[in-house]
Amino acid sequence: MAELHVLGQIVGGSHFQRKNIFCKWGVETGQNFELVEGITEGQTQVDHPFEDEMAVWAQPLDIHFACRGITGWPKLHFQVWSQDVHSRNDICGYGFCHVPTSPGLVTVECPCWLPEGTELQQVSSYFVGGAPRLKHEDIVYSPGDRFRLMTKSTGVIHVHFQLVLKNFEKYGVRFSSEEA
């Protein structure tokens, strides 16, 4: 069976409106991918960046999949939350990215968005907190209908991927146009 190793790091987030942010992340795959080792969901540290730099999460990734087919390639999905001085958490963005299919080192920047409520909700969230959240979080990474959703863009998540692919050549799967 072909094997896929996803190594790398969720480096951090930048350009988010609030500063003290953390990230809940998870990996979603199709049925062809079977987890062998590794952790596929978690939550990062809360970072308070010094001055206006990017918030550093430095969350290492090391996941090992066995693949029966190449459809349903893994995706990484994120929820960015901010934490205030009273340890209250508030949503800051949703986003997802595909795990790249080219072996080696790839840096991915994942832009994030947030649902925008009605004007009344926006005024109330400005004063008391509590931005509108998604009821069904799977729409972040599933290709269903998102047309009715009004959103605003928030920040960018930086992810470093390192992919190691084993035995794919044996089944004739190619990941670049170079001659093998």
Binding site: G12, G42, V46, P49, F50, A55, Q59
Partner: peptide, 17 residues
């Protein structure tokens, strides 16, 4: 600890440099 995936959610950190 920085190499571990688990247990990160309890950490409050300040990044610099």
């Amino acid at each position: 600890f920085p190499t571990q995936t688990e247990g990160r959610e309890v950490v409050r950190a300040q990044s610099s440099g």
